[in-house]
Design a protein around this nucleic acid. Structure first.
Lengths: 203, 203
DNA sequence: CGGAACATACGTACCGGTCAGTAACATTGC
DNA sequence: GCAATGTTACTGACCGGTACGTATGTTCCG
């Protein structure tokens, strides 16, 4: 009885967290523009002033949502990478394999960051800024992995993998389970194979 | 003097056409959801009832816009294909080369069909239906081209090319000129090379 | 020829609803 | 008491969509 939990197991959840969670689900499922703030607060079981006490604007909430999404993306990315430590080629395969499972679990609606960039073409929009930064980081990472693979032209291969990846995100949301992304892992691997330095070379 | 022009050279342009044109520019530049009907009619120099006499709803106008866009896409596609008659591999290269030029000419905002599918996840939306049909047709075409190339697994290669293509569309709108799509032609060609049947094979 | 009768094509003015965002105040729980 | 939250009501702008009036022919009849 002497326990006074600083973090009670039945977390009473702050309004801000409930809002974040509702916003995440709604934004991802329907898109940011399609979701109104009233919808968010209703789903969260809070009221509008609570939203605007925690976030300065809907745009800021959207940006926050995307930052959280980006963290989740990298978590999934690293989990896949952990399947093949020190083997970037295997890590790419693992990532696409996992992506394929995600698509099968329905509710998949592509990459929230890519989607946000489509919804907000204006470069000044907070949501777009988050998306652009995240995609630049991804590009850098893929190029770095291509380098570790021993590619002849690591930047080109990294970009090629990015094309396949973004293509997998967007086509999965267009076609659902049986879309072109089912071959993403195989195609990426084939592209990698064709882009490596020859094992040994004269001169 | 005896000419009575059924099509006067100074075409007085119907309201519907002016609306279509304005809608096309605005929808493409800003996205469909972001553009209001008032904005469209103002730019077109007409009034709202004119819009609703020519189109039953904004959604229908959006669907019309996408159908027109799709026609333009196939026109560009066939133009590229005409650069390498009977050589599907060269046609793919030509398409990506032309796409690269398009991106350089600024104002590029990706594929309107893909963007619409992102904006309207609901399968029942008229705009999304157009997008899905168009993308299914594209997939079929790419698989068919892969077959003509003599791919080991034409469906897989076709889908792989589709991943690269959609990746090129969406990353070009994210990164602009210097994005990953600059290597799309090269990567596609490399993937094709790695996917062909061996020239001759025993057993 | 003159002129109703009609269709076409367009504008003025407005609808109810929803958008993001806020002000002022009451309530709850530590 | 103090911080977080809820309650209620509101704003001005914008949303997609429409009822209704008007200008300009074109047609057909006398």
């Amino acid at each position: 009885m002497a326990d006074h939990p600083t973090l009670p197991p039945q977390a009473p959840k702050r309004a801000a967290d409930r809002i974040r969670e509702s916003a995440r689900e709604l934004f991802y499922a329907q898109g940011i523009r399609a979701v109104g703030v009233d919808q968010i607060v209703t789903k969260a079981g809070v009221t509008k002033p609570s939203l605007y006490r925690a976030f300065p604007s809907k745009d800021a909430l959207a940006a926050d949502y995307l930052r959280t999404y980006d963290e989740g993306f990298w978590q999934r990315f690293e989990e896949a990478a952990a399947e093949a430590p020190g083997d970037p080629r295997g890590q790419i395969r693992a990532f696409f394999a996992r992506h394929r499972s995600r698509v099968n679990n329905n509710l998949y609606r592509g990459c929230a960051l890519t989607n946000a960039a489509v919804e907000y073409p204006d470069a000044d929009h907070p949501a777009r800024k988050v998306a652009e930064e995240a995609k630049t980081a991804l590009r850098t990472r893929l190029r770095q992995m291509a380098m570790e693979m021993g590619a002849r032209d690591p930047e080109a291969l990294g970009d090629g993998l990015m094309l396949i990846m973004e293509g997998a995100f967007v086509t999965s949301q267009l076609f659902g389970k049986g879309g072109p992304a089912v071959v993403a892992a195989e195609m990426a691997d084939r592209l990698i194979e064709a882009s490596l330095k020859p094992a040994e070379t004269a001169d």
